[in-house]
């Protein structure tokens, strides 16, 4: 077990080091996030719709789009000099490879969200102070779920034509349950309603995470081995 985690961490650290070296992907994604938030500001009628009603949607649509960009690059960087082949020849456990990619993707998306959330608060003047901790909890739960599925699918499409496009198409239906949950809980939090009303959605998010993280950990080997 220790070996599994050690290998996963080696892969994740390598991915993050590469990300830090090139910076193109992370900077583009952060800028993209800021742009989407800006576009949302002009894509609504401020006199007709109160910001607070739209805020959860804005937040989650932005985060999902940003995550999609992040997921696309996860296995793309393994195609350089066929490094993926090298990983598969090595004694690296397939589940460790998946976990490594998952960790790196989560860190990547977390960085984007860490920039996106303050921007969101700033642009839309949403009071999050009181609910910051549960809000971060929801973001973490929902992000884990869709990044887990997305990491599996990005390995699935990497050797197909139109990989980027295909990933978005197959991933979106899977984003629906966590997205519905996240938007609903966020709406309740921002609306100042008690957290107890959102228990069902919290359970939904937690169940989704458990099911899809385990499933993806198990199924991943079938996407890479010949």
């Amino acid at each position: 077990m220790d070996e599994l985690f050690a290998q996963a961490w080696t892969v994740a650290r390598k991915d993050l080091l590469l990300e830090f070296r090139t910076r193109t992907a992370i900077v583009s994604t952060v800028v993209f996030t800021a742009l989407v938030l800006t576009v949302f500001n002009f894509g609504r009628d401020p006199t007709a719709v109160p910001t607070i009603d739209l805020a959860p949607t804005i937040l989650w649509v932005t985060f999902t789009f940003a995550a999609m960009l992040a997921l696309n690059r996860a296995f793309q960087l393994e195609l350089e000099n066929q490094a993926l082949e090298g990983l598969l020849v090595s004694p690296l456990n397939r589940t460790s490879l998946y976990w490594g990619k998952l960790i790196a993707n989560l860190v990547f998306v977390a960085v984007v969200e860490a920039v996106g959330l303050p921007l969101f608060v700033l642009f839309f003047d949403v009071p999050v102070g009181r609910v910051l901790v549960p809000l971060i909890g929801v973001i973490a739960l929902a992000t884990l779920g869709f990044v887990a599925v997305g990491t599996l699918f990005s390995a699935l499409v990497i050797r197909t034509r139109f990989a980027e496009l295909l990933l978005v198409v197959i991933l979106l239906p899977f984003l629906v349950p966590p997205l519905i949950g996240a938007v609903q809980i966020t709406a309740q939090l921002l609306g100042g309603r008690p957290l107890s009303e959102a228990v069902g959605y919290f359970k939904l998010l937690a169940a989704y995470d458990i099911v899809f993280v385990s499933l993806a950990s198990f199924l991943f080997r079938f996407t890479v081995d010949e």
């Binding site: 080696t10 080091l17 590469l18 070296r21 960087l77 066929q82 082949e85 090595s90 690296l92």
Partner: peptide, 26 residues
Amino acid sequence: WIGHQSHLYEHLTVRENLLFWASLYG
């Protein structure tokens, strides 16, 4: 394994690449 492809990450240094693969090979 030495094949047609080097399996090296272009944006890491030679040493970083070697250390990464050494770690994977235990």
